[in-house]
Design a protein around this nucleic acid. Structure first.
Lengths: 183, 183, 183, 183
DNA sequence: CATGAATGAGTATTCATTCAT
DNA sequence: TATGAATGAATACTCATTCAT
């Protein structure tokens, strides 16, 4: 029973992510999410308190994928250059969709630090571990590395429409290495 | 009673920029814009066809300020390093507000290249002039310079809540110089 | 909470007919229909797509009453004279209201033959059956009979304000017999 | 100066008649009437108190054409049969347009006898003169003749979409002779 | 007299949320 | 737990009318 519940909640989030990505927050109705998830409209409210709560769920979900990306990249690379290559490759999978969710969330909770911390906590923490691990090879302080990585990742989404994805990814990889890795 | 036309349109845009920046697009009613601009609700529609049209007006306005920033920075600097310093200083004035408008517009017209070109045309063109002017000192191709500048500028907005503005600005300046200027 | 569907739709139509009859189409708000039907404004839209759709529903309803009037009159009369008497008696019940709806609909869809056919189809068909049945006694072609009957019925509505209803009805009965029945 | 004024008022009415005929009352804006009449929006209000007042002007105008039709038909015919032929021919000129105006007016002032009398007064009076003139040949009372003539004329408009105009006109002529003329 | 910029009252429609079943 | 019928708050936009010029 508990399992079933989790499955349903996850199903809702996955469909919501798809729809929010495609149409934005306001242009997606709770009904349509329910429709895509093949459940009744009212059922949504068994799992989420409000529509905003669904977006929060989506954001949490996205940050978890990011966090696991970082973990994977760190697990498979001994040196920071390889780590960055792997990380960017992972980040660019579903990048448009994931970035979109972050934008929506950011816009909604602009200034609300509490929510922000709750969601980005684990993500930032994971970055800190990585920083510690590759410390020797990094030439900038933690805050800057965090800024550069997060910034480029988010920006990529907005820029991508006007530039070939592969070129974009390589430019970003190169830029990050220039900014972060000791020479 | 027909003289002030341009003044009034500008007034509307300025108040709309303020409100959109603060509350986003959907959470600002046309009435409230009219209220802030101290004119009647109907008057808005003398100057703008729809609410979307107001956002477009705001975006055009913001791009014009960016374009004039670039122009100013180029006018007062013989070398690219100085140009970047001045440009970033100018970009960071009202940056949160201006970036916010661009986000809103971007989200609304995501994928609509036509609108995009109409508004970014002059902006990109101005960058191209700058690129030609400092060509000797720049180590990356135009597209990358454009990506790095626009990207960092927009990202700064999203990051700023979590970082001291002065540090952010200096980090960005430094990063850009590293990425763009020949050594 | 999902049983009463048909009842509720019918209730809405009945109240809409009353209001449209009294105030016309544009001067009746959807809210007021909801108010009279003692349901929420939004509920209207569970049963009708648009306000125009409500008018269409009313028209369909009215044509059904006309059709059933014709049926009744034919069922209870062996001869055309009696048929016309009965039919006119039935037509004059609620005649102002019913005619009014037809006017509104006619004005709205003036020229739109498709809608017209959809609604008048069964009505005209019923007239054709009647024509066949009383054929021997009728001296004019079908189209004329249809014109005279429909025409007088609708006209009666516009004229009635200036003339005693009983005299009007008798005049119409007499005129129709003169025009339609073989002597 | 007085002449100019009358010309302008007439111009407004003529354009309003065209527009009301085509689009109905609510779907014609005062602006569009002004536009068609090639004058400023505000100028309309020099000649008419309200939009309703324009419709009243149109109705008066239409009734005047009807009245003059009756006059013409009576002037050129010694016998009622010829009178009816001529009258119907004249009525059918611009019949759709003129009937439409009457419908609009009727709907607007349904029940308001005062307005009605003011506008139909001369028209009815003219009919009375005609009745007196052809009295010997007429078999029905005045009220019935008035009902039959006005009724058929108005109805023709609603029926016309579904029937050939020439057939319609001939049917009506014949019907009226049957109902009105002594044999 | 003529104008059209300014105004705000008025309304159809959407949709998050509730709750009886 | 699951549902979807019912609800009403909220909002963009239109247009008759006014009035300063």
């Amino acid at each position: 029973m508990q399992v079933k519940k989790e499955n349903k909640k996850e199903k809702i989030i996955k469909e919501a992510v798809k729809l929010f990505t495609k149409y934005g927050f306001e242009d997606v109705s709770v009904s349509s999410i329910a429709g895509e998830a093949r459940i009744g409209k009212g059922t949504i409210y068994t799992y989420f308190k409000t529509k905003d709560d669904i977006l929060e769920g989506c954001t949490k979900y996205v940050f978890n994928t990011f966090t696991s990306d970082i973990e994977k990249a760190a697990d498979t690379n001994m040196e920071i250059a390889g780590f960055l290559d792997t990380l960017l490759d992972l980040f660019f999978v579903d990048m448009p969709s994931r970035s979109r969710i972050l934008f929506l969330f950011h816009r909604k909770y602009y200034g609300t630090k509490r929510k922000d911390a709750k969601l980005t906590g684990r993500y930032k923490e994971m970055f800190r571990k990585v920083y510690e691990r590759y410390k020797e090879e990094i030439k900038c302080p933690f805050e800057q590395m965090y800024l550069f990585l997060t910034g480029f990742m988010m920006t990529s989404y907005m820029i991508q429409a006007n530039i070939d994805e592969e070129i974009l990814k390589e430019s970003v990889k190169e830029a990050l290495k220039t900014l972060i890795v000791k020479t």
